[in-house]
Amino acid sequence: MQEEISNQLKQIQEQVETLKEKVRFLEDSKKDQLSIAIVSGDMDKILAAMVISLAAAAMDTKVRLFFSFWSLSALRDNKKKAINKDLISRMFGLILPKGRNKLKLSNMNMGGMGPMMIKHLMKKQCVLSLDQMFKEAGDLGIEITICEMSMNLMGFKKEEMIDYPQLRYAGAATFVSEAGESSIQLFI
């Protein structure tokens, strides 16, 4: 009799443990957190990503940005120089925009006229510039992760990336695991 009861108790305990585990998983998957995978390197798309991120951060939502492929151009520092690059990397480096202020528009680029006009309009209508947005992002603790694999693929080096307080290097698994916990996930 007693053995039966203790067996049942044990079973119940095990079930409670399993439930606890499941609840923890559910709670983690609904964090007040925004994850964005930013792949595009167009000025308008980087702007959109930054505006959304800043709005989220202003609402105390944790923001984690994962930059890969073309978007990495936006994180290049035009005052920094990387040495010891091979020929293809040097070529990529020359062709791709050197920094967030050299980005092209996805539409109406018109050989650089478009971005000039947009920057003029942004100033006129008091929209924060990309420089100001990155500064605010840093102050608000927005995290930027650089996809190391695509950085190597594009021939960029760590030495030429911007100084940013919350900058780190990681791989796709980091994005997947963190985005899995975020209640908002975007791809730009």
């Binding site: 505006v51 800043l54 709005a55 202003a58 609402m59 105390d60 929209v127 924060l128």
Partner: peptide, 13 residues
Amino acid sequence: RGTACPGPLLEAK
């Protein structure tokens, strides 16, 4: 008034 979206939100925060 000197800033557009999301500026006012940042100022408020």
